[in-house]
Design a protein around this nucleic acid. Structure first.
Lengths: 114, 114
DNA sequence: GCCATACGCAACCAAAAGTTGCGCGTCTAC
DNA sequence: GTAGACGCGCAACTTTTGGTTGCGTATGGC
């Protein structure tokens, strides 16, 4: 009935800051907590916490490179997330459509009665 | 650059409980804090707070009916929200696609070198 | 070797999500 | 009509989450 939605995945991309982080990582290909925080209105530490959330959700993975820790988007997992966005969108669209055609049916019935 | 996303609208539908509430309201056509909480793992009061958030975001509207207060989804606003889901999905998809074709190009270059 | 820089950890703060408890209005059944 | 049940709103409190500052440690460049 209700779309099979992974709440962890969804709430990971639900946060505006995290969504922008994913945007940035996709645009640049990779990034560290420091480089990301430079483009965001929050501190490096806040970014670090968000990265931990994204990591737990599997949306990003990290690779240590010397003294820095580079993160990149896990494409497969992001694809899954996008699929879920679509699924919910499609579900709601379908419901809205049904309501609309229902309303039209009622309208037709009314007109017929007249 | 980054999709024109309404953070208030998005964070309204970002919460799993609120998303399920919208699902329920769409399925039943309407509902009260009490009826919704019956189908959710939280108390009526928690549902009331979520309804207030959804109301502020314009996603639902309410109509008093005797001793109960019935809520229903604002279809136009939900349609807007769905559009935003699609927008973000499309953006990320495009980026993933670019990455994929980039990877393929690199692969081709490698093979050519061999 | 020394200093910049990048990171991790810890304490702390504020807002959001959720809870319990309570009082008030409204419907219903006797 | 009034008694009890039902639905709601308000208030106090707790927990989780997003954010901060401060500090110690490790690594890379000169």
């Amino acid at each position: 009935m209700s779309a099979a939605v992974d709440d962890d995945l969804w709430s990971a991309i639900g946060d505006p800051t995290r969504r922008r982080m994913i945007d940035l990582l996709l645009a640049e290909g990779q990034g560290t907590a420091t480089t990301l925080s430079a483009h965001l209105p929050v501190t490096r530490q806040a970014v670090t916490k968000h990265l931990a959330v994204l990591d737990r959700a599997g949306l990003v993975r990290s690779a240590p490179a010397g003294r820095e820790k580079r993160y990149h988007v896990d494409e497969a997992q992001l694809a899954r997330a996008v699929a879920q966005l679509r699924a919910v969108g499609a579900l709601w669209d379908a419901r809205l459509e049904r309501i609309k055609s229902l309303a039209e049916a009622i309208q037709r019935a009314k007109n017929a009665k007249k």
